[in-house]
Design a binder for these strands. Structure first.
Lengths: 241, 241
DNA sequence: CGTGGGTTTGATGACGGTCAAGCCTAGTGG
DNA sequence: CCACTAGGCTTGACCGTCATCAAACCCACG
């Protein structure tokens, strides 16, 4: 069970029993692979599938009429991709792999089947969806009320914390396949300003973003500067025993 | 069932059967009332309840260390209040009634019980949570990429569409208990700029925000100006028959 | 060794914040 | 019945953060 990143994540909310684990495993059929850059969920289209990300990074975003794009969130192993797109008539967003990725596909009937097998798993999935929403909410707060430098710091700290939960990062930093354009589109900034902000953080000795890695040069000072409080990630252990 | 706003809303996703309706009704016990301005969900506290809003308006928001506040969304009849706060160890946000409100309280065991009675209701609630997330996502896009005037127009159009679904609004407008301070905190603007933006929209003959009402003076032109596409509200009828 | 994606830096200006003040209206108390 | 108040709205002046435009650099890759 702990072999899947999703299992590990859900374990942070419910202590899963054997039948629940098997119901969860039954969702992990149909493995697929997608190459970097080719969308796997398409905004505005119907009958999209959802996926659980097994390895690699993805990005979910919305495109506006004038071609601007707003990145909603990045997904890392254990995260759902396009869950809303199976529940809605038309997908409200797109998902693109940042790297090559491995996923398992989930269709609506699979989900319904799993729900009827165990209500606690349904609850766990509702929790996971709510956690995603909490991250979007925090992101909203960042864009609405934090200035650029603090926003950047906060965002990278969040990513670090999420990656740590699945063993892909620590307070020292993490491997990061994103470009400055990704960060700009996520944070509502221009690429130019993104670059300036990163320079500041580097010059201040707080973090270094370069060539595929994020290094926290002074984690504590960075966290204080960004007022990072990871409560909203709710990673403190099972609530439902 | 159509007597509850929530039932009406969920009916937009699943065609509910008799047992599902009764499971839903079993969630509508414990009626309570809260007065305007007194928070009913508290950011940072544990063991919060969730509620279904029966009448009145509420607002969910996050407070930052420096006292700034970011409004995440407004809630109208049929919406959940504080759903994340029952699923998380600590609530990541607060909820305040804008007007006096009537609600029904929901505890975690109620939800688990309903889920075990009918998986389709669980699915419907997952859909409702996802729809909330979709609204937050659209809000994020607005703050990240739309300039102030367009953002305001889009936001008020969304509110209008949501209210229309529960019979509280139309393309002519709706009654609106919000102040310009509310709008400012929701849209990531200052109150001063909010006022200027509203003036522009009024002078352009698109909408009038005044003394408790929003009037769409030219709905079509406004919708075009804001590039309002309500797809993400997913209000087009049951997907699960 | 040329090309293109990603990064870096400078110059300029707009959108929206802050500060400050005044106005308008509903509700309260003398 | 009339101050008086407080919350909400409106407007002006000024300024800062961040966008835009432009150009150059760096490096991996074909």
């Amino acid at each position: 069970m702990q072999n899947t990143a999703l299992g590990r994540k859900l374990g942070a909310f419910v202590a899963l029993s054997a039948p629940e684990i098997s119901a969860l495993e039954s969702l992990h059929k149909r493995r697929r692979t997608f190459v970097a850059g080719r969308d796997l969920v398409h905004q505005g289209q119907s009958e999209q599938a959802a996926y659980i990300l097994a390895s690699g990074w993805a990005v979910s975003y919305k495109i506006m009429e004038d071609g601007q794009r707003q990145i909603v969130d990045f997904q890392i192993p254990g995260d759902f991709l396009g869950l809303r797109s199976v529940l809605f008539h038309l997908s409200d967003h797109s998902v693109e792999p940042v790297t090559n990725i491995d996923v398992t596909e989930i269709l609506l009937p699979d989900l319904l089947d799993a729900f009827s097998r165990t209500p606690r798993l349904a609850m766990a999935i509702l929790w996971a969806a709510s956690r995603d929403e909490a991250m979007v909410v925090e992101h909203l707060v960042g864009i609405g009320r934090r200035e650029a430098t603090e926003r950047m710091a906060h965002f990278l700290l969040e990513l670090g914390a999420r990656l740590a939960l699945v063993g892909m990062g620590s307070k020292a930093g993490f491997d990061c396949p994103l470009t400055q354009y990704h960060l700009a589109d996520a944070l509502g900034l221009s690429a130019v300003h993104t670059n300036r902000v990163l320079r500041k953080l580097r010059e201040w000795g707080m973090l270094t973003f370069r060539s595929g890695t994020v290094r926290f040069d002074d984690y504590d000072r960075l966290a204080e500067f960004a007022k990072f409080d990871p409560t909203y990630l709710d990673q403190t252990g099972p609530l439902l025993k």
